[in-house]
């Protein structure tokens, strides 16, 4: 069974006047199909305001579709009786960690989610330790989350979701505030959950390098999915991506520029190794 199955999804925000009358509608998601098998790793790219966060909020039923249907692990997200189960299936890490930090001490904050799910105490603290270690914040367990730096807070928020052991994790720009090593660690943590425990991962990001690790990349523009494919397929389209306010990883861009300057390089080079191999081949042939 598909863990996520969304068909013809539409979402409209309704704006109200000061008098409380509906004034205007913003179609933030406009006819999206989204499907994921358990264990899939999907990256979603798209310009600011393209509807990524709005779509993501549907996956754990914070929002429900204005039109169309969405099933998460077989449950209709519009069915209020399934809300609890859907939230346990799909954990969400938001764009701004401040909005999701609740506890006054780091480990209590991380324990909050699983505790609410009724995880027994002994198991609970094991999970808290494991997830704090996974994000490299175990040493901060007795700190106050409010006094941590931006990036540190973000890792606590991720630990809180990891501790709930959901089947699916939706991450909405989880690395936007992290340093390069922190970014790599978070992505590695997420990849590991994906590879070893087959957690389905939906990763929204503006860092193109992070999307190369996904099985599939979805590109959104004005509420619609305008391109979908493997990272190589998607990042082969350098000009298309630029036209839609996006980019490609630096190594892909360099390869593309070199190709335009006359070098015989393939499209969609994604890693340093690939580029170096291709360049070696050219140099060897001279």
């Amino acid at each position: 069974m598909k863990i996520i199955k969304g068909k013809d999804l539409v979402y409209e925000y309704i704006k109200f006047t000061d008098e409380g009358e509906a004034e205007a509608k913003v179609r933030a998601v406009d006819g999206v199909e989204i499907e994921a098998e358990p264990g899939d790793f999907i990256a979603i790219l798209g310009h600011n305001g393209s509807g990524k966060s709005t779509l993501a909020k549907h996956l754990n039923a914070i929002l429900t579709p204005t039109e169309g249907t969405l099933y998460v692990d077989g449950k209709d997200t519009r069915d209020e009786n399934s809300l609890w189960q859907i939230r346990q299936t799909a954990g969400m890490v938001f764009q701004n960690p401040d909005n999701q930090i609740i506890g006054t001490v780091v480990d209590e904050d991380v324990a909050f989610g699983p505790e609410n799910m009724g995880v027994p105490v002994e198991e609970l603290w094991k999970r808290v330790e494991k997830s704090l270690r996974a994000v490299g914040m175990w040493e901060y367990r007795s700190h106050s989350p409010n006094k941590l730096s931006g990036g540190q807070k973000q890792r606590i928020a991720i630990a809180g979701i990891v501790a709930m052991q959901p089947k699916c994790i939706v991450l909405d720009e989880p690395t936007a505030m992290l340093d390069p090593v922190g970014r790599r660690e978070v992505i590695r943590t997420v990849m590991e959950l994906n590879r070893t425990q087959h957690v389905t991962v939906i990763l929204i990001t503006h860092y193109m390098e992070e999307a190369i690790l996904a099985d599939r990349v979805m590109v959104m523009d004005s509420g619609k999915v305008i391109l979908q494919g493997t990272p190589r397929e998607v990042f082969s389209k350098v000009e298309f991506m630029r036209e839609h306010r996006l980019d490609v990883p630096q190594v892909t861009q360099l390869a593309w520029e070199l190709k335009r300057a006359g070098l015989d390089l393939p499209d969609g080079i994604l890693t340093t190794e690939e580029l170096a191999d291709a360049l070696d081949a050219i140099r060897g042939g001279e």
Binding site: P180, V251, T272, D280
Partner: peptide
Amino acid sequence: LEKVGLAAPQVTYIMHELETRGW
């Protein structure tokens, strides 16, 4: 830089990789 949480731009690594390959 990597020891203190940072890194170099991706292209810097590409040039290092090429250097180790005799470029």
